[in-house]
Design a protein around this nucleic acid. Sequence first.
DNA 1: TATATTTGAAACCGATTGGTTTCCTAATCT
DNA 2: AGATTAGGAAACCAATCGGTTTCAAATATA
Lengths: 106, 106
Amino acid sequence: MRRDIYQAIADPTRRVIIALLAFQAMTPNTIAENFNTTRQAISKHLRILTECELVKQTYQGREIYYSLEIEKMKEIDNWLNQFREIWETRFNQLDEVLSTIKKQTK
Amino acid sequence: MRRDIYQAIADPTRRVIIALLAFQAMTPNTIAENFNTTRQAISKHLRILTECELVKQTYQGREIYYSLEIEKMKEIDNWLNQFREIWETRFNQLDEVLSTIKKQTK
DNA sequence: TATATTTGAAACCGATTGGTTTCCTAATCT
DNA sequence: AGATTAGGAAACCAATCGGTTTCAAATATA
């Protein structure tokens, strides 16, 4: 089963888990307390996040701490780069239009 | 049926469509030529992209030109903002570690 | 007017999703 | 040792997904 990061962030629950883990590492039970679902459902989400390496596990006794692999989030940012240039250009064009209007108003 | 942008970009075909439309507006038939699927499948993808306002239609005779709503892409960028601060901080920390090592090496 | 082209919509299909319930293993605590 | 706790795995379920085939409507062309 091929997992990728885009599929991982498609689910709203997983996006919240990612945001939670951005602050601090947490165990599945602690994470589950923040949601209205069973621990097992959260466990499945964590599995998906782990499979696409967005999250890593640290074993500590019988507890497992999950933490965010923040570097992986940059993959999305990199994908956005191809559009960033376009939307910045559009902004510049808008700036030009606005300054042209200003000149005409004078 | 609640569509959101994260679900929209989860599919690889849709991500390519988005990238194509970033360059220029295209009709469904033209878009479909770039893929190994039927036009109808592309049509369904375009529907999903339209529903979450990532793409807009311009009618021209019997043809429909689809173009990217680049502003909508910023929503993803905004969501990433909450992590950007973290990964930049980590980078700074790494810089500090590296400069400390340098000093020790001297 | 008859025909061809462009497109969306609906019906259908197998695979996947997100969830639950049930069960198992491994640590920890008394 | 026995009970409790943390957590994963499997079986199952309804809903959704991405695809195809078939059809209908509107525009363009002969």
